[in-house]
Simulated assay, not measured.
Amino acid sequence: MAADIPIIDAHIHLYPESEVDTLAWCAPDHPLRKQHSLDEYKAASAGSAPRGFIFLETDRKNDLAAGERDGSGWEHPLMEVAWLKRIATGQPKPGEGHAAEDAPLCAAYVPWAPLPSGAAVVERYLDLVEKEAGESWPKVRGFRYLLQDKPSGTMLTDKFVESLKLLGRRGFVFDLGVDQHNRGRAQLEEVVEMIDRAHDGVPEDQRVTFIINHMCKPDLSIYNVQTSPSFIAWRTAIFTLSKCSRTYMKLSGAFPEMPESLRQRSAEDIFDAIAPWLSVVLAAFGAGRIMFASDWPVCTAGGVGDGAWAKWKAVVDRLCWMASLEDDERRMIWAGTALKAYGIEEA
């Protein structure tokens, strides 16, 4: 990788020790149940020193019904917005693991939003996010409602589609998190239908942009991809999704989908093992619509450890080298695609 190519890490999670109890997934014995703030992130990525990052919501506890009724179910997601405001504006509380000079690192952030509740409710929620975000509001570039573990059909309800159309009209992206490994081809088929419905009848300049997380979480334990129904279904879906307008893909989230024995190996061995998946993503979306993303600190779990960020960077770097990408294509993968997809203006 050329030394002068900057990095924007397009997918990280941060949370302070004081708020771990608000994380919906963080059981008392969870290995990530400790502070993960900028001090830790900067240490993990120290060898490359990214120019900036894009924060993704961390699935805080929420109650859709209470949110629709009086907003009380949105307490913890709005608390997360307040946390990101402190980071983005350089106003840390003592012990939170970041400093005033870290503020420029936050290129953008993507909070949670109650998309199943419908456009009218989401509009009310956006007003509260804008109020909570204050001067950091311009850095809110999109929203996410994690679909990977939700019941089948959630993303195809009229209310969900209405909410997506609202985000498009307001100029926000939707970060799409689904899981082919555990949910199978049916969930990816729903995604294609959802995108079609969200864009149906909408002028091109008002269509919501979809930024797909983690390559749709394919099963990276497959040995013979030529005959695997799972791989073939995933590959078909990736090429179909790439043909949808306003779709981008994150090169991220691979470690949790690998066998533990593979996670422990070198970046070169990992690249060799998952090259079929990386090659499909690159062929389908091209360098101009894929982006480097570490998924830190999730990438450190499952025995990968503190070297996970550097190891994943080395895998993506090897992809660029093996594909003989030109410097302008590499610049897109390492930063340009994220800036374009999220509508971030460089300082």
Rank of each mutant, 00 (worst) to 15 (best):
P297T: 06
M1G: 13
M332H: 12
D328N: 12
F174G: 09
A65R: 06
P218M: 01
P28I: 04
T240F: 08
I211Y: 00
A254T: 14
F172Q: 07
S72T: 15
D29G: 05
G97H: 02
F174R: 07
I5R: 10
R86G: 05
D175P: 05
A310R: 11
S37N: 04
N213C: 10
A108W: 04
F231G: 01
M215K: 06
G184Q: 06
I222Q: 04
S136V: 06
A186L: 11
C320F: 04
A113D: 04
L126F: 13
V192G: 04
G171H: 00
V192D: 14
A10T: 09
D9A: 06
S279W: 05
K311G: 05
V192T: 12
D29I: 02
W25C: 03
K150L: 15
D179P: 05
K313W: 12
T300H: 05
R318T: 13
L339F: 13
L147P: 01
G52W: 11
A341Y: 00
V304G: 09
G52F: 08
A65N: 00
A267M: 01
P111G: 07
E190F: 06
Q180I: 06
H76G: 10
P16C: 08
W74E: 14
I333R: 00
E80P: 09
S45I: 07
K139D: 00
L23C: 01
A66V: 02
L105E: 09
V110N: 05
V316C: 07
T227W: 07
P104C: 12
Y15A: 04
A119H: 10
K34T: 08
P256V: 04
P276S: 01
W309T: 08
K217W: 00
